[in-house]
Nucleic acid binder design. Structure first.
Lengths: 259, 259
DNA sequence: CGTTACCTTGAATCTCCTCAATACACGTGG
DNA sequence: CCACGTGTATTGAGGAGATTCAAGGTAACG
């Protein structure tokens, strides 16, 4: 089933892919929040140094390693996680089209988590040595960087609340609702259908349960009829009910205030 | 015991406290990471609009509410947490002297977590309406804001890993080690001693266990002899061993790179 | 000197984990 | 083309881990 996906992605990508013009540029996806000025847009175009394609399952960034680039996701899904020596690992976040990854490497000297590709992924490359110019010349974009960091913090806080306080079915309901609504904002849904490239093993590492227990809890949650999920094919049937099951009230999710 | 603390704090604060000069100003505490230019320092001094004193146990910021100010902690400890309707709550982070709080209110339109005072606290008030000037005129400080947000994200990631993957004694070892080393960096330790104003109930909400189980696991951890903790008086006896018990390798913790 | 807040402990119960086995889809090499 | 290995999903059973209920203890406060 994951292979189905992989096959599609392979087929859809002729060898030398044309580089996406900056109308679709990563930071520009923030137009979901606000519009850029022409100057900002021009700068962003000059910021982008190319694109990086990574196969499903490939590593994009490794914890404790450095990176001379920032990236934003142009297409595909990525997974952010932290590992402990003995093999345990915790998924800390997902990255969907429009999401920024690798900020820690630019701001500290090393990543504090790893990033791997869940599907075949195309990333926009933003060299960190131009980042300083962004701060010096484009206060609006500098503010956006802070905004993005704060958003990440906010998501991690939600996950932490979930893992720390909610029980099995609540956690699953929460994360499925979260992933679905984020995917929808990223324009990845058709009606209530979504290609969800997450295995139960990865889901288990997200909610902090064993694979077996995750599976059993998921069976129970399926019986509520809120959704159907077979292979990578996810269909949302009753979003409100699912949100209720997570005891989760959707965040305001408003446009950036002008300070 | 918590009262001991409160009594001290009361005694130490004569009614109309003099406002701290900006040599000790919040953002300036970042000198732990880097030095400010004279211009930056001058701006920061103009940024600060006053101080706010909050008693132990008092609310500083509430989830879903807005705030027209940013704060940094000048003295005391604060707790950041998210609550679920039925009374459960998850501590997402602690705030020590030098830490920034309330960024979310400035960047979004509402806080995504609450903040309460663990001890009597003095906060530096930074009105958000001057924040824009910071971004326009002081790229270095703007970068610092991003840095602070990324640091918060990093800590939340560590906590998430802990709560999601580590077992009882590991979690406690981790959080105690983390709090101790953060307190030391903030200059709150004398030798290996620390006034740790955290109750077991708050600790339980941090690690995601019930109070009873937290207590029992803590008893076991005490027997390792890594630390002594009676009331608010914490003494670190074997830091490395405690770190090992958490299966936690201390982060590099380096100075901000110059991009 | 009663109240309150915090810490501690035991017992019963439930949640979750590990081990183990099966099943299915897929891709690979013979 | 089939046999085999791999990755994923599923299910059962037994045991460790965590929760809840309940009770008692201490210190500080009014």
């Amino acid at each position: 089933m994951g292979d189905n996906l992989m096959a599609k992605a392979k087929a859809a990508r002729p060898a030398p892919m044309t580089v996406t013009p900056c109308q679709k540029c990563p930071l520009r996806r923030l137009k979901w929040y606000r519009d850029f000025t022409p100057e900002e847009l021009k700068f962003i175009a000059s910021f982008k140094s190319g694109e990086l394609n990574v196969r499903a399952g490939g590593n994009i960034l490794l914890e404790n390693e450095n990176s001379s680039n920032l990236y934003t996701v142009l297409s595909g899904w990525v997974l952010k996680y932290k590992a402990v020596e003995d093999g345990r690992r915790q998924v800390t976040n997902y990255g969907l089209p429009g999401d920024l990854i690798g900020l820690q490497a630019s701001v500290f000297e090393a990543m504090h988590h790893s990033v791997e590709a869940l599907t075949d992924v195309t990333l926009c490359i933003l060299p960190r040595d131009k980042l300083w110019t962004l701060y010096e010349k484009f206060a609006g974009l500098a503010f956006d960087m802070t905004w993005l960091g704060a958003r990440e913090e906010s998501i991690l806080g939600e996950y932490l609340l979930s893992v720390g306080q909610r029980r099995a079915s609540e956690r699953l309901a929460f994360i499925l609702h979260d992933l679905f609504s984020r995917a929808r904002r990223a324009g990845l849904t058709q009606k209530n259908r979504l290609m969800l490239p997450v295995t139960q093993y990865q889901l288990a590492d997200t909610v902090g349960f064993s694979l077996v227990h995750t599976n059993k809890a998921l069976q129970r949650l399926r019986q509520t009829g809120c959704f159907e999920w077979v292979g990578t094919s996810f269909e949302m049937l009753d979003e409100n009910k699912l949100a209720t099951l997570a005891s989760y009230e959707p965040p305001p999710d408003k446009v950036r205030p002008f300070l």
